[in-house]
Simulated assay, not measured.
Amino acid sequence: MQTVGKPAGFRDPKRYLWALGLIAPACALLPSQLVYWTKAEVLWWIGPVIVLVAIPLLDWIVGEDGNNPSDEDYEALSADRYYRWCTYLFLPIQLISLGVACFMWTSPELDLVDKLGLAATVGFVSGIGINAAHELGHRVERAEKLLSKVALAQSGYGHFFVEHNRGHHARVATPEDPASARLGESLWAFLPRSVIGGFHSAKRLERARLFRQGRRWWSVRNNILQAWAMTAVLFGGLMLAFGPSILPWLIIQALIGIALLETVNYVEHYGLLRARKPNGRYERCSPRDSWNSDRLVTNIFLFHLQRHSDHHANPGRRYQTLRTSEEAPQLPAGYATMILLAIVPPLWRAVMDPKVAAHYDGDLSLANVAPGKQRRLLARYRAAA
């Protein structure tokens, strides 16, 4: 039987691999069974183990993809609803996993370290869930936008729905964007700047949108309040079902999810700066303004998020249609590996600062440099040149 919207003879080599992305939300369902059968309590931490150990190893073994859909296949790929269901099904698995984790957090059989491991696992699911929300939030269909807010409920990061689409995409790769990391800025300096700056930006953007419509902040049409209300309903319902003792664990997993998302933000645009037009305005975002990686395994788990250059140049494209570009600067590894590097600032700078310099042919005046670091970095790479 031919899938609706697919021409005869059409074949997507990664078509069925996308279903493997559902392993991510299922991670929180695995620990109890794995610990029961293996007696290895370290498996309560299976989420970080998969993301920070298994995926980098698989990225290294499997290597890069490099396969781009042709122009002739673009419409068929976009219309094929199979790909949408790969993101839709993420949500029920994510929420069921959270419910199972809440039940286990109330168990007296788990000690504090085991519960922390489970919280870390659920938090990694929450962070990847924000990526699923990211994919759904870019769509024009009202139902998919609603599902995006549902996916954000677990992390409590509902303002991301507003800030990412109307803030980050407008200001990406500029000093005005809180989510674009600057050359010389450590992950630990970036995290509070991005979290706080993104929150305030989202409020300003939504307040301005409501004002243009003649509505007040306290409106049922407020996208931020809608998303936060979903978090309140979700957390409140879980506490009614399992007791208030789960609240600290819900907060811990949400913070871990937020930290994972923002660390990925740090990786995606580090040091990159859009050129300015003669009138002082920034040029339209191009593939040169985002770091790319074609590591197949991480791309499957993150719905092609690593083809970030095409995503910013063409934000309306669905994940399965995103293309790699020779114009885009390439990371030396997949996001999972780069997260490990970012955690250790000297290691990150040793790997990435020369790549930023090479991207701009040694002229760091063209880069997005952290305030206070310009003189030192410019002098270093001028001397090297």
Rank of each mutant, 00 (worst) to 15 (best):
K115G: 08
F160D: 01
P244I: 07
I258E: 05
L260D: 06
L146N: 14
V195C: 08
T174K: 00
R323H: 04
L191H: 08
H312G: 12
L146S: 15
L95Q: 05
L296Q: 10
Q320L: 04
A133V: 01
Q33T: 09
P315D: 03
V122Y: 13
L302K: 07
D177N: 02
I130M: 12
S194E: 01
L341S: 13
E144G: 11
K14F: 06
S155I: 08
A119N: 07
E268C: 05
R215Y: 06
S365K: 10
L347N: 07
R15C: 08
L58C: 09
I252Q: 06
P31W: 03
L57D: 06
N265Q: 08
N368M: 00
L95C: 09
A19K: 08
N292E: 15
W18G: 11
F161L: 12
G372V: 06
Q94M: 14
D114K: 11
S32P: 06
L225T: 00
P192R: 05
L98M: 13
S126F: 14
W228R: 10
D363E: 04
Q226P: 03
A227S: 12
G167F: 05
F199C: 10
V356P: 11
Y157F: 15
L341Y: 11
K14A: 08
L89R: 03
S290P: 05
L364C: 02
G198R: 00
V264L: 08
W249Y: 06
P244Q: 11
V140Q: 15
A151P: 09
Q2W: 01
P278I: 03
V122G: 12
T38K: 11
I55A: 09
P354I: 02
M338H: 01
Y83A: 01
R221A: 13
R221F: 11
L261S: 03
P354K: 10
A202T: 02
C86M: 11
L146A: 14
D71T: 04
K14S: 10
A259Q: 10
T106V: 11
E64I: 13
Q154V: 15
R15M: 04
V113Q: 14
H311K: 00
P69V: 01
F211A: 14
H164W: 00
V113S: 15
S201P: 06
H138K: 02
A333P: 08
A24F: 10
R276Q: 11
I339D: 09
L225R: 08
W85D: 07
A342S: 14
D80H: 01
L34C: 02
R166I: 05
N279R: 02
I339R: 11
V150I: 15
G129W: 07
Q94C: 10
H269M: 10
W218H: 15
E268R: 04
R376T: 12
V125S: 01
P175D: 09
D65M: 12
P7R: 15
P371Y: 07
S309R: 06
P31A: 01
L110A: 06
G316L: 13
G129D: 03
F10T: 03
W45D: 14
R376F: 13
E144T: 07
R276F: 06
L238R: 10
H312D: 04
A179L: 04
V264Q: 04
W44Y: 08
W18M: 07
F90M: 07
V122P: 12
L255P: 03
D59E: 10
L341Q: 04
G5K: 01
E163D: 12
Y36D: 13
R317C: 12
L89C: 07
F235T: 05
P69D: 00
L191E: 02
